[in-house]
């Protein structure tokens, strides 16, 4: 399929302009991302709220600064993407207000997978991009570009205590499949295969974790009642 409004060359050129315009926001994003991950590895009071606030900031930033103020130059669909990203940011902010959030790394399949997703977004994604010829500044950077931000989001949600409700990861799934398909199959960006993989594996594991948690809660409740 060729009916796509821009080429990969133009896409990475846009990142070059964008990265230059927002510098040093990338450093701040890395700092916030590492903070959120540390708060999941070593949970503290209000740590969950801070981590969710970080995710909220990432998604709001991507919606407004990336999609609306930059990506719109080359893609007429950018306002729709911006709306979805802002909505996701609002959902995270709402979850913060709800006060239900604790991120905790556990040594189970969900914890290790979550950690892997996060480390991939922080370190492996830029490395793969560099190897594919898309190094700084012609690259999507963690926290301020959609692909690594989405992968990181799946990772963090896998470490959310009690599991994440569907509405909290529906938009990341949509973006992973739509944006990932376009990046891989039309623009031929090899490192973005990871976004497609995250968009399939991430939600499967999140649903599994959510269901497992519900089942455990029911069993616990049943045991209490029988005693």
């Amino acid at each position: 399929m060729r009916s796509f409004p821009f080429t990969a060359d133009v896409y990475f050129s846009l990142f070059e302009t964008y990265n230059s315009a927002i510098w040093p926001a990338q450093l701040v994003a890395y700092g916030l991302g590492i903070l959120a991950l540390v708060l999941a590895l070593r949970p503290r009071a209000a740590g969950g709220r801070i981590a969710l606030a970080v995710l909220s900031i990432f998604w709001l930033w991507n919606g407004i600064a990336y999609h609306l103020l930059h990506f719109l130059q080359i893609n007429f669909a950018a306002p729709a993407f911006a709306a979805l990203f802002v909505l996701q940011g609002v959902l995270f902010a709402g979850y913060v207000v709800g006060g239900r959030s604790i991120f905790r790394f556990r040594t189970d399949v969900f914890g290790w997978s979550g950690l892997l997703f996060c480390l991939f977004a922080l370190a492996a994604y830029p490395l793969l991009g560099w190897l594919a010829g898309h190094g700084w500044p012609r690259a999507g950077v963690f926290g301020v570009a959609p692909t690594p931000t989405t992968i990181f989001t799946f990772g963090m949600l896998l470490m959310l205590e009690g599991g994440a409700p569907l509405y909290l990861f529906a938009i990341p799934v949509l973006w992973s499949l739509a944006g990932g398909s376009a990046a891989v199959f039309i623009l031929r960006i090899p490192e973005d295969v990871s976004l497609l993989v995250a968009g399939v594996v991430g939600p499967c594991m999140l649903v599994w974790k959510f269901a497992k948690n519900r089942s455990e809660l029911r069993n616990t409740s049943h045991l209490k009642n029988t005693r």
Binding site: F6, V10, S13, L14, T17, I74
Partner: peptide, 13 residues
């Protein structure tokens, strides 16, 4: 100009 002229603000392009 579909696709080919959509080069954003890249001065070189």
């Amino acid at each position: 100009t579909w696709i080919t002229f959509n080069v954003g603000n890249d001065e070189r392009l």
